[in-house]
Amino acid sequence: MKLVIDDTRCKGCNLCVMVCPYNIFQEGQQPNQRGVFVPGLDRPERCTNCRLQQLYQRRLCGVCQTICPDQAIRWVQESPFEPQKVVIEY
């Protein structure tokens, strides 16, 4: 699964930046065409849900999606298959 921010919905509040245990969300540096500083993603393949949703058949962690007041965070199927390096952090 792949983590995406819908930049037509995001209002740049950075709540996702505050809550992700892996610090995947980074404060946006540049405004998009709507003037919103959409956060960037740092190695999103580390996200628990990206790695394990298919295996467990349910959403894991997901706090960023629940707290995002603008319903801008979701996961999409990767197609075609995109190989990913999994980084394990202790």
Partner: peptide, 10 residues
């Protein structure tokens, strides 16, 4: 932007 109402709907 940043209003928490959307979180409560979620």
């Amino acid at each position: 932007a940043g209003c928490g109402n959307g979180t409560i709907i979620n």
